[in-house]
Computed example of a mutant assay.
Amino acid sequence: MHSKYAVLSTLLFGLGLGMLLPVAQPAQPVVTQQIMQKTARNLSPFELRSVHGRFDQHTLLGQWTIVMFGFTHCPDICPTALSRLATLETHLTTHSARKTLAYVFISVDPNRDPVPELNQYVHYFSDSFIGVTGHPEQLKLLARSVGAQFQVTAKSGDYQVAHSTMLYLIGPEGKLRGRFNIDTDLAELAHQLNGFINGVRRQTT
């Protein structure tokens, strides 16, 4: 009699344990989301200024460049993006022993962002960052070339600046090669950027 109860208890315990233990699921393949929007677009001629002097389409030749639009009086979006860009720079440096990228912050608010102050502002985030600005029409030329937009409303008592938040990758031949959002996984972004740059380099050598 006792043995029957023992067998019944064992069965019930086993059924209960089976309900508690998770059922093993077959492994699913990991799908990595493509972060960068790839493209290939020529840039219109433009002329801006940095502390190093003239900054134009020829300045971009011979190196990969990440370009960001913004302004120094931006309360939160630009400082956050620049901080993340500095972290991205660190990630990219670990992927490559040699410097392959330039980082350019373009102010769309030249009235309040003279070049010396602009350069000092970007160096707060990284000494390698370059601050660039210039005449509004020249800024619009470059913005249209990469697909960015901005608007400055300079009314008395109502000074507002709006701008695109995407970042833009320009190749060593001076063409726009891609766009991406900095508000993403920076380690994965660095991995994808490095893979893309190395892939283009292999195709051209």
Rank of each mutant, 00 (worst) to 15 (best):
His58Glu: 14
Pro45Tyr: 07
Leu101Met: 15
Asn42Val: 08
Ala81Tyr: 01
Phe71Arg: 03
Thr65Pro: 03
Ser44Phe: 06
Arg41Leu: 12
Leu60Thr: 05
Arg98Val: 13
Thr59Ile: 02
His95Val: 00
Thr87Cys: 00
Phe105Gly: 04
Thr87Asp: 12
Ile77Ala: 13
Phe105Asp: 04
Tyr103Asn: 01
Lys99Asp: 15
Tyr103Leu: 09
His73Ala: 14
His95Pro: 01
Val51Ala: 12
Phe55Pro: 09
Lys99Pro: 02
Pro79Val: 11
Pro79Arg: 06
His58Lys: 11
Asp56Asn: 15
Thr72Tyr: 01
Ala97Glu: 14
Phe71Asp: 07
Thr65Ser: 15
Phe69Thr: 05
Gln57Ala: 15
Ala86Asn: 07
Glu47Met: 11
Gln57Phe: 00
Pro75Ala: 10
Leu60His: 05
Thr100Pro: 00
Phe69Glu: 06
Ser50Ile: 09
Gly62Gln: 10
Ser96Trp: 01
Glu89Thr: 01
Phe46Leu: 10
Glu89Val: 00
Ser50Lys: 03
Gln63Asp: 09
Ala86Glu: 10
Ser83Cys: 01
Leu48Trp: 08
His58Gly: 00
Trp64Ala: 06
Cys78Glu: 11
Asp76Arg: 08
Leu101Asp: 02
Asn42Pro: 04
Met68His: 12
Ala97Tyr: 00
Thr80Ala: 13
Leu82Trp: 05
Asn42Gly: 12
Leu60Pro: 05
Cys74Ala: 10
Leu85Ile: 07
Phe46Val: 08
Thr87Gln: 14
Gly53Val: 11
Glu89Arg: 09
Glu89Leu: 03
Gly53Arg: 08
Met68Ser: 13
Glu89Asp: 13
Arg98Glu: 15
His52Ser: 15
Ile77Arg: 02
Ala40Arg: 14
Ile77Pro: 02
Phe69Leu: 14
Val104Phe: 05
Val51Gly: 06
Trp64Gly: 05
Ile77Gly: 02
Thr87Ile: 13
Ser44Pro: 00
Val67Pro: 02
Leu48Cys: 10
Gln63Val: 08
Ile77Met: 11
Val67Asn: 04
Ala97His: 07
Asp76Trp: 08
Leu60Ala: 04
Pro45Glu: 10
Arg54Phe: 01
Leu88Trp: 06
Ser44Thr: 12
Ser96Gln: 12
Phe71Ala: 07
Arg54Cys: 03
Met68Gly: 12
Gln63His: 14
Thr80Cys: 06
Arg49Asn: 13
Leu82Tyr: 06
Asp76His: 10
